[in-house]
Structures are given as C-alpha cells and as structure tokens.
Amino acid sequence: MNTLYSIPKSVATFATVTDNENQINYQRIEQAIRYLEENFKRQPALEEVAEKIHVSSFHFQRMFTEWAGISPKRFLQFLTIDFLKEKLQESKNLVEAAEAAGLSSQSRVYDLFTTLEAVTPQEYKQRGAGIRIEYGFHATPFGTCLIGITERGICWLSFLTNDQDPRFELEQMKHHWNNSIFHEDHLVTQTFVEKIFSDKAPSQKLHLFVKGTNFQVKVWEALLRIPMGNLTTYQDIALSVNNPRALQAIGSAVGSNHIAYLIPCHRVIRKDGILGEYRWSSVKKKSIIGWEMAKSAGE
C-alpha cells in the first residue's frame, strides 16, 4: 500500500509506508543529535534522550543503531572537536602520501564513481534554456530530498529540513535552472536515489551536470576528491585550486553547491575542528559526517 508524504498535491510524490516511517525516525535522530550536543557536558543518559524524542530507550537505541550502525554514544564521539582535528590531520597525511607516491588527483576514492560536466559558457548565459529536468521527492537516510535529472546527468540534489514546505526547494531548483523545462517523474528519479544512497558502490558512474562559474566548478571538482569518511578545510581547498588567499570565495563556492552529498561540501570544516554551517542545516551536516565516519570505520 502506498501513502503520500505531507507534500502539496502540486509536488506530491508517492512513498511506501516504510519510507514514511524512516523519515519520521530520521527526524527523531536529528532531534536526538541536537539534544546530545546541547547537553554534551553532562552527557545525558540514553533514557533521557529517548524521553526527549518521545520513544522508549529500547526503541531509540535500536532505531539509532539501525540508521548509523553504531550506538548514539559512539556516534557522538565522531563529532568531538579533538576527533575532528585528528581526522583533518589524518586526511591531510593521506593526500600527502598519495602525492608522494605519484597518484593522480589525490586519493580519489569517491571520484572513481562520480564524474562532473559543467554547462558551456553559452548555456550558462542562457540559464538552462532548452534543458529538460525530471524531478522527484524521495526518502533518504538524511530525510526527504529533491533530485533533478537531465539527459546529461544529475543536476540537483537538496535536502528538506524538518517541516519545510517542499515547494521552497522546488522553487530554489527552478530559480537555479531558470529557463529549463521541469517535469515531475518519480519513477525516473527513484532509480538514481537508490544508486546514490545504496550501501554498495554503484555499478555505473554517477554523472553530474552543474551550472556555475569557472571558479565554482574548480572548487566543486576539488570537493569530489575528498573520500568518504575524510575531511578537509577551506584552506586546503584553496591550496588545491591554487588560490590560497581566496578563502571567502572558497566558502561562497562551497555554499553554492547545488548537488548535496554527491559533491560533498559537508566534508569541509573549519581548521579548528568546528563543523560550521551547512546549507541544509548544521544538524544535518553533523548527521551526514557522523554517519559516513561510522560507515568508513566499518563499525
């Protein structure tokens, strides 16, 4: 049996009851992560956090472990400043070791599965004129997403924040690809979402189609070279694009990324170990980073 998301009919998308339940569970997980961080100094007990999100402690432990593969307590350890600083140095050492060994483009673990194409200068001026975009709203491990697909690749991926009107994200996509033709097709987009968030490496490369300035595209290409479970800083991204002083422009380009998760802007944090802001909420950034850390650690 199918059920509707709480989305207006103009952007209504069908999802299974299981998917709907997963979205509710993820919202609870976000609430739990926020509460744990706000009260980290006194380290609240599992029962207290579970009560805060209105579930039993048994259900909370099981729900969180099924999502992340680890306990809430272990998950939070991945987000401490000391751990994140250590991870930054470890990631930097991996890059330096790869360069010393003569490996191309750093350790491009994730980029092996992702390719990127930018619009031409003429297409950039035309702001997407003549491009057809199929779009759909779908369940993911990090809440509901909006994805846009063209015949040249994935051109949009964004997350909805809790209780957000999905029309807002749809308008963001339409504004970015201003003159394109939009058509909702949940069946087409579902296959891409399944590939993106599968536990297995995709059997075929995921092709991305982006619209940005030359500088933005260079920064997004640099982001693709950050393997899952690793982190980098704005300073290191600036160095990788041979523009070490352009930190403000780097931050702007990272924040302008319109293909979340696949172009992993969430893996860029401050050099002091502070995670910083994220276009789709700072709590979602924490969720994604902790989830990736757990997956890459094999826990």
Rank of each mutant, 00 (worst) to 15 (best):
S287G: 06
A101E: 14
E99L: 15
F182L: 04
A139L: 01
N162F: 07
H59N: 13
E123V: 08
V17F: 13
T114H: 12
N39G: 04
Y135G: 00
Q106C: 05
I181G: 01
R42G: 00
T13M: 03
L76H: 14
Q235K: 12
K87I: 07
A118V: 04
T3S: 06
R74P: 00
E277M: 09
S56V: 13
S256R: 13
L170D: 01
T233N: 02
T3W: 02
Q172P: 02
E99C: 04
K285V: 08
L187S: 11
G130C: 03
Y110D: 09
D165Y: 11
L170R: 06
Q106I: 08
K87W: 00
V109T: 11
L76R: 11
L157K: 09
N22F: 11
Q235W: 03
T191W: 01
L46K: 11
L231P: 07
Q31C: 07
Y110W: 12
K52L: 01
G102V: 12
A15D: 04
T120Q: 03
I269E: 03
Q164G: 07
K92M: 05
V254T: 05
F197K: 05
T114D: 01
L146K: 00
E99V: 10
N2K: 13
I81N: 08
P227Y: 00
N20V: 08
F75H: 09
F159G: 00
N25Y: 08
A50D: 04
G143M: 03
G136R: 02
R127V: 12
M228T: 13
S296Y: 10
Q164A: 12
E171T: 13
S158R: 05
P202Q: 02
T114N: 02
H183L: 07
I149Q: 02
L208C: 14
Y278P: 05
E37A: 04
F78L: 06
M1G: 09
C265R: 11
G69T: 13
L187C: 01
L84R: 15
L88V: 10
T18A: 12
R279M: 07
A294G: 06
A68N: 03
F137M: 06
W291K: 14
F192D: 00
I263Q: 05
S256I: 00
K73H: 10
K85S: 04
A297D: 14
G229Q: 05
V193M: 05
P227G: 00
Q89Y: 10
G255S: 14
D163I: 03
I226W: 09
R28Q: 09
A294F: 09
S296T: 14
A45P: 01
M1K: 10
E66K: 15
Q89E: 15
H258K: 15
F142E: 03
V219I: 13
H186P: 00
T13N: 04
T189W: 02
I81P: 00
G298Y: 10
A12I: 01
E90D: 12
M173R: 07
F182V: 03
M293E: 10
N178A: 10
S240R: 15
V268W: 08
F209L: 04
D236R: 15
I24L: 11
L160G: 06
T213S: 15
T191M: 06
